[in-house]
């Protein structure tokens, strides 16, 4: 399927470039509506990859790239369940999102995240599966999960360590602070910082350049230098599920859900 218009995202294939556009209010939170559509995208990606050289992931929301998992939904839907069932549902959700992330991470074409505004939590983790991150000057990256008593659960810890090393990871993970595009470029996370509103345009220009290269060579290079840290990804799911059952986490989530602010875990 070369084009798709869903409730939370759309994709379009043009001249070897697949563009996946996230578009769910308020800021592309990933939950039960987005995940099945991401699953459909991954199925389509498997068919389109042989006639493509690049994938661009971007957001249609002016608020930002993606605010991460839909924690309000996660809390609301898990609240009435017995602990065993709650744990099973959570694990199923994480397994499904990891399958999506792993598929995009390993697809044999060059992937580009075009970021504006916030890329927080699961949104940051989605950017981290891409080969290149192009960010405009409004971009901010953050792992806020520790503020809720959790760790990132969509594969962010192993992937950030793969790309940047442990010191930067510890800084972001353990302080929960956000960094801007300039800092993200300085530590090696972002490949290009561009003017406000220009991330997608520059991503397209970069994708056009990639078309000049032999597709198989680019895929071989990527496979050689970008291993998927499967063991650590599995361990991350285990730790997340263990932490989620603690009363402190459920209390943190309750406060989060009851807040009416856009990002209630931030100052």
């Amino acid at each position: 399927m070369k084009t798709f218009q869903g409730k939370t995202l759309s994709w379009n294939w043009t001249d070897g470039v697949i563009e996946l556009t996230l578009d769910r209010a308020p800021c592309n939170e990933i939950g039960s509506a987005t995940l099945p559509e991401l699953g459909r995208f991954v199925e389509a990606l498997a068919k389109l990859q042989n006639e493509s050289h690049a994938l661009i992931i971007s957001s249609a929301r002016k608020e930002g790239f993606c605010a991460g998992a839909d924690l309000r939904e996660l809390y609301r839907e898990s609240q009435p369940l017995a602990p065993n069932e709650r744990g099973a549902r959570l694990r199923d959700f994480l397994e499904r999102i990891h399958r999506v992330m792993n598929a995009i991470d390993s697809v044999p074409l060059t992937t580009i995240a075009a970021i504006q505004g916030i890329a927080f939590g699961g949104g940051f983790e989605l950017a981290l599966v891409c080969d290149l991150i192009i960010a405009d000057k409004t971009a901010r990256f953050c792992f806020p999960e520790l503020r809720l008593g959790l760790i990132p659960g969509f594969g962010g810890i192993p992937r950030l360590r793969r790309d940047l090393g442990n010191a930067v990871l510890r800084d972001l993970l353990l302080t929960g602070r956000s960094i801007n595009a300039t800092k993200a470029q300085a530590v090696g996370l972002v490949s290009q910082v561009v003017a406000e509103g220009d991330a997608l345009r520059i991503a397209r220009s970069t994708a056009a350049q990639l078309k000049k290269f032999d597709r198989e060579t680019a895929a071989a290079a990527k496979k050689f230098i970008k291993p998927i840290p499967f063991d650590e990804l599995r361990r991350e799911i285990e730790i997340f599920c263990e932490l989620f059952e603690r009363p402190a986490v459920r209390e943190g989530l309750r406060k989060f859900v009851e807040s009416t602010d856009a990002l209630p875990y931030l100052p």
């Binding site: 800021c27 608020e63 930002g64 505004g117 916030i118 000057k137 409004t138 901010r140 953050c142 302080t175 929960g176 602070r177 956000s178 960094i179 801007n180 300039t182 800092k183 602010d261 856009a262 990002l263 209630p264 931030l266 100052p267």
Partner: peptide, 29 residues
């Protein structure tokens, strides 16, 4: 503004003053 827009202000402050200002330093401010 809400906290999301406050982050936008923080980004512009960091760019304008060429500094890094961790958002936890703004807690309660």
């Amino acid at each position: 503004i809400n906290s999301l827009q406050a982050l936008d202000l923080l980004t512009r402050i960091e760019q304008h003053f060429h500094i890094e200002l961790p958002d936890y330093e703004l807690q309660g401010v």
